[in-house]
Design a binder for these strands. Structure first.
Lengths: 174, 174
DNA sequence: ACCTGAACACCGTTCAAGT
DNA sequence: ACCTGAACACCGTTCAAGT
């Protein structure tokens, strides 16, 4: 009676969802093409019809992580908007199974990653930064956030450093 | 005529040096226990007499990276001392084959990592931070540095963000 | 032309057998 | 008791053979 019984056609979505479930238990290391195929009840090579190789699948998982970071909206000061955005980004970096594969900077951003970038740049330019300095400020904020997630800083520690960085950025506006 | 001919006894040092050479070409992914054993002209299980498992060997490589970060000395202001220390840390994070395995924070620091921590804390407390806030400030600076290395920020970008963070920290001293 | 799965060239690590 | 290397339980991916 379910639409996901054993006969359901394979798809990128179904593969990604199974991959995420696999990585949720046991971490990203537990995700193998063979184990994933077994979980989906297909033979391993079937997955290669939807993803060029494992690297492409991991990239897609990283993009799925980016989709979990919601833009912060217009409420509050530019500082509090950035705090909300980066707080969410940090939570995803730290807790999403593919958080370590999440790329929010670089040449070829996925649509979800580009949206985060756009949101951050919007807040910074509305705050008064020129486009060039806004880009540098965004890189700094993102570096700090990714690093804090990687080093497993606690909430209070993360906020302390973020406030100091925002203080330093705000001083540039006067 | 060399002391490292084929008959030289195996040791942790010799294993680490070969592992580093292997990771230098082809990155950390190219480092396998079997390939490493082949390089050393021993059978794979010999390595397990010196390292419990691959994880322990990678930890030792990370510590070797920490040893490459020299303390900055007493010259200049506390800001410039921190800039030198973190600039070197960033260079090692980014260029050392085991940079991604480098752990400078957490419960059980290796001697080399503890020395870096001690140097950073010394600079911050001499600058006027109390021990508790110095710890938070150090965590923030290290987060930023590790993140900038991971995101492959360029030199100018790294320095821009570091200066902003230092500005925000300096404002806490008055 | 397409689909299949056997096979290739690897892994990290265990453990039985031999000395 | 110790050393050895065969073997186990995996990998990601290719490609020959079959339909």
């Amino acid at each position: 009676m379910s639409s996901t019984d054993h006969a359901t056609r394979l798809s990128r979505e179904r593969i990604l969802s199974a991959a995420l479930a696999l990585a949720d238990r046991g971490g990203l290391d537990a995700l193998s093409m063979r184990r994933l195929a077994q979980e989906l009840d297909v033979w391993p090579m079937s997955i290669y019809r939807y993803f060029q190789d494992k690297e492409a699948l991991l990239d897609a998982l990283g993009d799925a992580a980016a989709e979990r970071i919601a833009p912060p909206g217009d409420r509050g000061s530019w500082r509090s908007q950035l705090s909300r955005l980066l707080g969410r980004a940090r939570a995803v970096f730290a807790t999403h199974p593919a958080g370590s594969r999440l790329r929010l900077r670089g040449g070829s951003l996925t649509p979800a990653a580009a949206e985060i970038h756009h949101a951050g740049m919007g807040i910074l330019t509305r705050a008064g930064f020129g486009p060039e300095e806004a880009e540098r400020a965004w890189a700094a904020l993102l570096s700090y956030t990714a690093g804090a997630a990687a080093l497993e800083t606690d909430d209070a520690g993360f906020e302390y450093g973020l406030e100091r960085l925002l203080d330093g950025l705000e001083a540039r506006l006067s």
